[in-house]
Write a protein that binds this DNA or RNA. Structure first.
Lengths: 189, 189
DNA sequence: TACTGGATGTCAGCAGCTGTCATCACCTAG
DNA sequence: CTAGGTGATGACAGCTGCTGACATCCAGTA
């Protein structure tokens, strides 16, 4: 394995996920990850801002997908419906990598630091979707609230979809979660 | 300032907030904080799990307040209403320390690491409230969704209350946010 | 006075992360 | 074919957050 092997980032991602699963996030050192990928610790930090980020890289591209879908929603769509359309547009990306998703989630679930990072990613997704809604003319606080509600619905649906092997259709679960939220908040005085 | 001055934790909290504001979170070292408080770095880490936690200590007691209020809500109250009652029950705690809240938030807003920690605290609050709802017989996913919705409403209301000096009544803002959420999710098909 | 327990100090050490500079592979112009 | 340029990687030094282990100190109590 000489210098300049292709796909350094991918090798680092894979090595990290493996080591985090084998010995736990805290017990795996960055030096070990880099070694397994045939690189040095310094190079790891050139690709990823920190030891956690290696599990979350790719969120950026996903965010663009959500934002694009919101922008593409028909003018007549209510804020929550535009968000719902975006969530469903992104669903296939997850459907294609269910097993990888499961592995990632089990690692994250075992470490509070990783949960923090995931929450931050979710928050910045909500913020990006709120931006996209504002560009459609939605005012605050409706834009932010719609985005946050969407993120909650997705989170709930995704967790159910990952944990129940019988569930096939992530989009359906997303719609169901949004429906439950509607029932929930309705009928107050 | 000899050993055994009282209120070590309080001195550390104050010194930390001061230093974080003076030079930024990253530039302030734990050794400096401890020195300003008349203690050592090692002692800092006996009181706080890490450098961030010093800004969030006290959440535990607050959580008990929320949970207690949910448990005390009348049996007839819907899940969201029990949560709303809890949020309003805790509001006075914040009303009493508006200026401290502002300072804390400005420090947190300037540092992603601190935002992560705040999100984690919020998530664990939501989780505790969902637990409390389940003890009232609320089933999933209604319990979790109601708790999450409540946290969003509080966050929104608190931000508005902090940033607008004209706003006096945090409870009123909380009710308004919940109302907006209701309008938001209503009327979908 | 002696003893005990909890709080604090001291010291050593690892691991995450960063700045800096050298080195290497590849590309292109001449 | 060679010289230089460019971007990726390595090597090294250093700071800081955080932890374990053990010593030390103060306050109360028998």
């Amino acid at each position: 394995m000489s210098r300049w092997e292709p796909n350094a980032r991918g090798r680092l991602e894979q090595a990290a996920l493996e080591l985090y699963r084998e010995r736990g996030f805290d017990q795996a050192t960055v030096a070990e990850i880099a070694e397994r990928a045939g690189l040095t610790e310094r190079t790891f930090f050139r690709y990823f801002a920190d030891k956690r980020e290696v599990l979350f890289w790719g969120q950026g591209a996903l965010t663009e997908l959500y934002v694009g879908a919101i922008a593409a929603a028909p003018d007549s769509a209510a804020p929550v419906d535009a968000v719902a359309a975006a969530l469903e547009a992104a669903a296939p990306v997850f459907q294609e990598r269910r097993e990888l998703g499961r592995q990632r989630q089990s690692v994250i679930a075992a470490n509070p630091g990783l949960q923090e990072r995931e929450l931050l990613k979710r928050a910045s997704l909500a913020s990006a979707m709120a931006d996209a809604l504002r560009k459609r003319g939605v005012t605050e606080p409706a834009a932010s609230l719609a985005a946050e509600v969407g993120v909650i619905a997705f989170k709930t649906a995704y967790a159910r979809w990952l944990s129940d092997p019988d569930q096939q259709d992530l989009s359906r679960l997303i719609r169901e979660s949004l429906g439950e939220l509607e029932v929930m908040t309705a009928g107050r005085d």
